[in-house]
Design a protein around this nucleic acid. Sequence first.
DNA 1: TTGCCGGTGGCACTGGGTGTCACCTACGGT
DNA 2: ACCGTAGGTGACACCCAGTGCCACCGGCAA
Lengths: 203, 203
Amino acid sequence: MEAVTETMVAADAREETRARIEQAALDLFTAQGFEAVTIDEVADAAGISRRTFFRYCSTKADAVWGQFDGHVVRLEGMLAAAAADQPVLASVYAAYVEVNDYAAADLPMLRQRMRLILTEPALLAHSQLRYADVDRVVAAHVARRTGVAPDTLVPRLVATSTRAAATTAFELWLADGEITLGAALHQAFDELAAGFPSLRLPG
Amino acid sequence: MEAVTETMVAADAREETRARIEQAALDLFTAQGFEAVTIDEVADAAGISRRTFFRYCSTKADAVWGQFDGHVVRLEGMLAAAAADQPVLASVYAAYVEVNDYAAADLPMLRQRMRLILTEPALLAHSQLRYADVDRVVAAHVARRTGVAPDTLVPRLVATSTRAAATTAFELWLADGEITLGAALHQAFDELAAGFPSLRLPG
DNA sequence: TTGCCGGTGGCACTGGGTGTCACCTACGGT
DNA sequence: ACCGTAGGTGACACCCAGTGCCACCGGCAA
C-alpha cells in the first residue's frame, strides 16, 4: 500500500498481517468483550477474510496470545542454561523473571492482553492449555536437576505452583498499577519458596 | 419403566435423569474421546432429546463435572467452621482432604471423571472455570483469617498454589494406582507448606 | 371440565471451526 | 517472453455447540 510495502518480502508481509490481526482482536475484545465480537468483525477490521483469520490463529482465543510459543521456547533455553550450582527453585524463579522482562514500550499491550486473559472466562479457560506447555518445560527442568522422572510429585508440583505464583503476580501487577511486574514476581516467589512466611506473622 | 418409577416424585425423576446423562457422557467420552462424541449421541444414550440435555448441563463439558457445585459449598462450610487457633494453611489443607474423602464405591467414577478432566484438552481448559470458584472461596477464607483484602497477594497465592497442589495430588493418584488420594494430598501439601524441602536434599 | 404450570421435544438460528476448490501472484526454468 | 509450479488467499459448504421460541403433554387446583 505504501513505499515500505513494496519492498516487503513474503515473510514480512505475513508478520505484518499477523500484527494487524492481533491488534484488531485486542482492541475489539477490549472494547466490546470477547464473546460479543465475531471473528468476521476481527477479520474485517484486519482487512482479511474469515478463512484467512483461521490460517493465522487456530482459535479465536489464540488471537490474544501473540507470540507466546516463543516465550515458552525462551523459558526452556534459560532453564537449560541455568548454572548447575544454582538452587532449582532459584533457577525457575530467575527464568520467570527474565522471560517477563518486557521493554517499557511493550507494557501497554501486555496489560491489555493480560487483562483480557484474566478477565474473560473463555480466555481464562484457554490459558490453561498454554500454561500446560510452560508446566511441562519447568517440570522437565526440575526433573533433570533432581534426577527423578518428570511426571512425579516434586517436578509437577514445582511447575504448577510456580506458575500459580507467576499468575498471581500478574494479577497483582494488573490491579495495582504502581507495582513493577518484576517486583510482583519477586514478592510472590518469595512467599512461595519460604512456605508463606507472612501467614506466621502476628495476625 | 418399573414399579419403582411409579412412586418417583418429580425431583427424584430429575435426579435419575441427571445421573443417566452423567453416566452416558462419562462412558462415551472415555470410549471415544471428548471431541469425537456429539451431544446428540449423549442425549440418545441417556434417552432424552438434545434440547433437554442443555436443560441439565449448560455445557458439554459440564456433563463431566456432576455435582461439583456442592463440593465448593461443602469446602466453604468446612473453612468457615475451622478452629480459629488452627494455622491458616493447615485449615485449607484439612478442608481439601475432607472434601475429597470419597467413599470407596465412588472411587471408580471419580477416576473416570478425573482422567477425562486431566487428559482431554477441552476439559482441562474448562476446569479452570470451575477451579476459579474454589480459589475465590479459599482466598476469602485466608483473607478473613489474616485480615487483608481477598484480592491481595497472600490470599490469592495461597488459593492458587494449594489448588495446584491438590491438582498435582490428583495426577499422582491417577497415574500411580497404588497411592491413596489422601496420601497424595498429604505429600503434596507437605512439600508446598515447607517450601519444597526435598529440593534441598542431596541430589 | 377448565385453566394453569413445569418439563419436554422440535425447530430455526447464530457463531466457531474445518475441508475443499478456484484463483492469483510470485518465482524459476526453458 | 512463455510456461509450470507453489504458496497465500477468498468463497462456499459443512459440522457441531449453544440459544430462543413455541407447541405439546402431563399433573393439579378451582
